[in-house]
Design a binder for these strands. Structure first.
Lengths: 170, 170
DNA sequence: CACTAACAGTTAGTGCACTAACTAATTGGA
DNA sequence: TCCAATTAGTTAGTGCACTAACTGTTAGTG
């Protein structure tokens, strides 16, 4: 752990600002950090989604279904591909999910008039109406989380950076 | 905590800080997809795990399997329950996963000598040896992520708060 | 001592998420 | 014009993750 004397008095070749903090970190620490971040990300996501479960249960929605409904409540005729781009999900994942939402009477899966290949996913009246109940979800989650809003905002900012980095590179 | 502003002079019945910001949002914004922390969390986790896929593929591991191996590389005889506590996973999730690791020749699933109910999960020589290759995983991920280390640290701090909040409450 | 509680792990069933392989519609050239 | 390449969505197959219901073991209590 005790940094070897590599960068002692020498000018430090390519010191981008990003690396300033790294210079105080051993490669070992870097590995640990990465492992911890990926682990924390997976656990936090599972835990938070688990928090949604009892809240979404009365609405008859799972968490991914809830995200799809959020997208549709914002803009209603959407194709499968468009939903996939919004949520970073594969069409193969959405296809059965959308059928379940259709079976629940929340959406319609009609052929797109301009392009027979595509589907026009629209809300049914029941689907549109469900938004009323959904308005109560975020406050309940925030309450159950019991985390300061500033912390949530900080988390959101950090996550956005990661998402930008991982979707831009693709 | 610098919670100064909330303690005005009027007591304000049960205004926890969490609720002030949420209740002051317009209902429209409340359900906006792009400000849902849960959405960002889910997408970030999926993206990062997707980043691991090609890196873990040569090792023959999935991401959850990799996390289990990380736990075992740190401490080797572990029960299913103990792994579950470390990774926040249900025994029902781990049971088939561990059988796959056993089938891959990386672990052994022996009955625990002191308690016939429990399993003693141990590494095989091959499983222990795999650590060598795994040492190369985090640097590859950090490189592919292309994110500043400060951002990773900030993310880790935020996630830790969330995990603490969600596992303590259970 | 017996018998019930609690506990460790497994199995069944549902749903998410991915890749690869497929069908059908559309587009763009040669 | 016609036909190859692209595109939209579906299906099959693997694996993760959960809940509920189960088997078998241990431990606690009457």
């Amino acid at each position: 752990m005790t940094r070897s004397a590599t960068s002692r008095t020498t000018p430090r070749p390519t010191t981008r600002p990003a690396e300033t903090a790294v210079s105080s970190m051993s490669p070992d620490d870097l590995l640990k950090l990465d492992q911890q971040v990926c682990f924390a990300l997976a656990v936090a996501a599972r835990n938070v989604i688990g928090l949604y479960r009892p809240v979404l249960d009365p609405l008859g929605l799972t968490h991914p279904q809830y995200l799809v409904m959020l997208a549709l409540w914002e803009r209603s005729p959407l194709t499968v591909r468009e939903i996939g781009r919004l949520l970073s999900l594969e069409p193969a994942t959405l296809s059965p999910l959308l059928k379940r939402l259709e079976a629940a009477g929340l959406i319609r899966r009609d052929r797109h008039p301009d392009d027979e290949r595509a589907l026009a996913i629209t809300l049914t009246p029941r689907g549109r109406q469900l938004r009323e109940q959904a308005l109560d979800v975020p406050p309940q989650i925030v309450e159950r989380l019991g985390v300061r809003v500033e912390d949530l905002q900080a988390l959101h900012a950090s996550l956005s950076r990661i998402i930008a980095a991982t979707t831009a590179t693709d």
